[in-house]
Nucleic acid binder design. Structure first.
Length: 640
DNA sequence: CCTGACTCA
DNA sequence: CATTTGAGTCAGG
């Protein structure tokens, strides 16, 4: 029902009697924190009745309800107990701009429920494709027809341009279908015994809403400074490349890079997934020509600028969005911007050749070289320039004006400290928990326990003091991740820099050392084959295609880890409410938070305890670091 | 193995 | 001519 000025006084009292609402808002754009606003609100109630309240349609403003009524409606929503919507965080951010206070309400995202019950992972997760899948093709006709009208009239980028007569019924259909999907998914979740995981996911929605609402502060001065530095240096580097190549070309185009190298008589040592010559980092590492190092450098700078500096330069606070739907395993994903892949390394602009590098950088290079041992031309000092034509490093210092750290952009609000809480070797611990290896479980309770070191000791019969022990630790580490990721023997071998036969031998020794691991993997794969699904420790069900059973172990380990963190974030919510702490970013096994600076040490002690506790009884260890004054300055925080 | 963003063609 | 699409690359776990 389209709510008009003569109806509104009769309808609001009906809504006042309700505690649960289905909601869908229409807006003039997608960015609630950068000026976009609601033009109308769709509301559904338990009986199935739906209403559309137009407030800011530009087409015929006489049909809009006054701002007084908007306030009254928000008041009614504020008195409710439960709000249900499809991709509900978007609607809530918009409603927050109008005064909605959702922080103690039950918030239900029907999209999240749908993802738990659909066997297949469909790429189309919008409301209309979903109702077609679940209730039959053709049910979303209203959506297609409305979108055609909107597009034809150029209203598609700003729905508020359209008349309420068009958008109202459309919005009400959305609300109606949201309700139907909700009823359906409630039933299906019970039928597939996923109540536990659904309960966690539901609570997580409110936490993610809060994180997105909080946002994270950006040091825009540093951002501008870094961008200037980059823009000064990039043309110089470009010119160097053109001089060496004896021509101008688009350095970011793999195709054109290929042409340049072909003309120099150099062919690619790698191929892409589609079988074309590849010019990625691994390939360039193996090419003994000064161009390859410079191209790698140019690409890194390009990425830094276009992905991590330019998009942030006009903002003081970044409000990304975290999705608790969409991933195969139950992890979160992050977008607009993606805050889960902010570079850890620091990029040096001077083009210097640095031989002394941090352990982390060394390992990175070693891994690449090892992967191509035998075919690599990377032997001896002559090729070092290709390898280290530029450097990336781990530690940032303010004095160094020739280096750029993206994490340096991220700072706390005034009055707060930025703290990072990191799970130590979380996936490994989850992996071990699947086959109750008591001996390792006991060791894992100790602070600073290094699983890879231990695996190398017992797997390869080492004491830990051998000169080549580092090598064996790397082997053990590669095998552990290889197993968790479900990679085949061939890829493991290439990663180890060994033949397939040798890799198998290493794996055998490993399985023998880590008692129970082989049986766990075998059983999991068998279950996937037998039933077509596996179930993780929280009851999350993963449907697995025949022939892809090797993903099952990864799904269980990655998914259970993700669900542990979800459970712990829920546990943190109440405590943070009491002490004014804020969760800002989750990166799978790490939580970046803002904590009041006057008591950050005491609070962090408690947070560590909360995060280490868990209902699965896995011995988890959380490392706490202070990021002061920025994320780039991350340092261990000793808590006594 | 699980992601998302950007660029080119 | 503008917009969409697939491939390639690379940032994180």
């Amino acid at each position: 029902m389209l709510v008009t000025n003569d109806l509104v006084d009769k309808i609001l009292p009906i809504l006042e009697t309700q505690k649960i609402f289905f909601i869908d808002v229409e807006t003039d754009g997608l960015e609630p924190y950068y000026g976009n606003r609601i033009c109308g609100i769709g509301i559904g109630i338990a009986s199935g009745k739906t209403y559309y309240f137009p407030f800011r349609h530009k087409h015929d403003q006489s049909k809009n309800l006054s701002q007084e009524y908007l306030k009254l409606l928000i008041g009614i929503l504020n008195d409710s107990e439960k709000l249900i919507g499809y991709n509900i965080k978007f609607d809530l951010h918009m409603l927050i701009q109008e005064g909605l206070i959702p922080w103690d309400k039950e918030l239900v995202d029907v999209l999240v429920a749908i993802r738990l019950i659909e066997k297949e992972r469909f790429p189309e997760l919008g409301l209309s494709p979903t109702i077609d899948r679940i209730f039959g093709e053709g049910n979303s006709k209203y959506d297609i027809e409305t979108k055609i009208i909107l597009r034809k009239n150029k209203w598609i980028k700003d729905f508020s341009m359209s008349p309420e007569k068009i958008l109202g019924p459309y919005c009400e259909e959305d609300v109606m279908w949201t309700r139907k999907l909700y009823i359906h998914s409630e039933y299906e979740i019970k039928r597939t015994s996923q109540e536990k995981i659904w309960n966690l996911q539901q609570k997580l929605t409110r936490i993610l809403l809060r994180m997105e609402f909080n946002g994270i502060r950006i040091d825009s001065n540093y951002c501008k400074q870094a961008l200037n530095l980059l823009n000064e240096y990039k043309p110089i580097l470009g010119k160097k490349i053109f001089d060496l190549a004896n021509r101008e070309f688009n350095i970011l185009s793999p195709k054109q890079i290929g042409e340049v190298f072909t003309d120099l008589g150099i062919s690619s040592p790698e191929i892409t997934n589609k079988g074309n010559p590849s010019w990625n980092e691994t390939a360039l590492f193996q090419i003994d020509h000064p161009l390859s190092g410079l191209i790698r450098e140019y690409r890194t700078l390009g990425k830094l600028g276009s992905t991590y500096l330019e998009p942030f330069v006009d903002y003081l606070t970044l409000h990304g969005s975290f999705c608790n739907w969409g991933t195969a395993t139950g992890r979160l994903s992050s977008r607009d911007p993606n805050l889960q892949n902010i570079p850890r390394f620091i990029t040096s602009l001077s083009g210097e050749i640095t031989l002394e590098q941090s352990k982390e950088v060394q390992e990175r290079i070693e891994a690449i070289v090892r992967a191509r041992k035998g075919t690599s031309v990377l032997i001896g000092g002559a090729t070092l320039s290709a390898m280290t034509g530029f450097t990336t490093e781990k530690y940032y210092s303010d004095e160094d004006s020739e280096r750029i750290s993206i994490r340096r952009l991220f700072i706390p609000r005034p009055g707060y400290k930025l703290i990072s809480y990191d799970y130590s070797q979380m996936e490994v611990r989850t992996f071990i928990s699947y086959f109750s290896n008591q001996r390792i479980s006991d060791l894992m309770k100790k602070e600073g326990f290094d699983f890879h070191k231990e695996a190398a000791k017992i797997g390869f019969n080492k004491s830990g003091n051998e000169p080549d022990f580092h090598f064996y630790r790397q082997m053990a580490k590669a095998i552990t991740f290889g197993i968790i990721y479900g990679i085949g023997n061939a890829r493991l071998a290439s990663q180890l820099g060994k033949t397939e036969e040798e890799a198998k031998e290493y794996k055998k020794a490993y399985f023998k050392a880590i008692e129970g691991s082989r049986e766990f993997i075998r059983e999991t794969t068998n279950n996937a084959q037998l039933h077509g699904y596996v179930i993780n420790k929280y009851g999350r069900k993963y449907w697995i295609d025949s022939g892809k059973e090797y993903v099952a172990v990864n799904y269980l380990v990655q998914g259970t880890s993700a669900d542990i963190l979800t459970e712990r974030m829920i546990a943190l919510e109440d405590y943070f409410k009491a002490v004014r702490g804020k969760m800002l970013i989750q990166i799978h096994d790490e939580l970046i938070c803002e904590v009041p600076e006057d008591s950050y040490v005491e609070i962090s002690k408690k947070v560590k305890d909360i995060l280490e506790e868990n209902s699965l009884d896995i011995p988890l260890v959380v490392d706490v670091s202070l990021c002061d004054p920025s994320w780039a300055h991350k340092k261990d925080l000793v808590l006594i």
